[in-house]
């Protein structure tokens, strides 16, 4: 049976009726058309579905939508500003950290969360901070460079 949940997504409050068995990823993608959040496995292995939930990055394919009741969610769509790409997104473009781009929304969310919590991460912390986000195209090198360029 559907239940109405309320949550904040990218600074906007939503009330939405969801089945208990729908994941946060599927709700974002298929109910709210926030398709920037990707799915590469649906079982927590790839990180393409990474969103920030109440300040922490999570695999949205392993969170029930109903568990996000009352939560504050940030997705890739919330990152760019009125002026366009955020500096972090710009850095990904500039450094060539995006190839096919399927992992990119997830990786950028992980990177944002990392930099929010630790504005000056070491190389190891950067590696650690995207360790759940698989990228098959880039070999991560340019992803590291993009994140490094955003140290304060």
């Amino acid at each position: 049976m559907k239940k109405i949940i309320s949550l904040t997504i990218n600074d906007q409050s939503h009330e939405i009726a969801v089945e208990p068995n729908i994941t946060l990823a599927d709700m974002l993608r298929y109910e709210l058309a926030l398709t920037g959040t990707k799915k590469g496995c649906d079982t927590g292995d790839c990180g393409a579905c990474t969103v920030i939930m109440d300040g922490d990055v999570v695999n949205s394919c392993l969170v029930l939508a109903i568990q996000a009741n009352g939560s504050v969610i940030e997705t890739i769509e919330g990152l760019s500003t009125d002026e366009g790409l955020s500096p972090l997104q710009e850095a990904f473009v500039e450094k060539g950290a995006i190839q096919c781009g399927f992992c990119s929304p997830g990786i950028i969310m992980s990177a944002k969360n990392l930099l929010d919590k630790n504005p000056n991460p070491t190389e190891d912390q950067i590696r650690e901070g995207v360790s759940g986000n698989l990228c098959r195209c880039t070999g991560y090198q340019k992803i590291f460079e993009a994140i490094e360029s955003q140290r304060s």
Binding site: G36, T37, I76, S80, L85, V93, E94, I98, G101
Partner: peptide, 20 residues
């Protein structure tokens, strides 16, 4: 800069399963 990556960085780039 690549011409496709700004859209990929913002989640705007459309992949097959994003289409309904």
């Amino acid at each position: 800069h690549r011409i496709d990556t700004p859209d990929k960085a913002t989640g705007q780039a459309v992949f097959t399963d994003d289409i309904t």
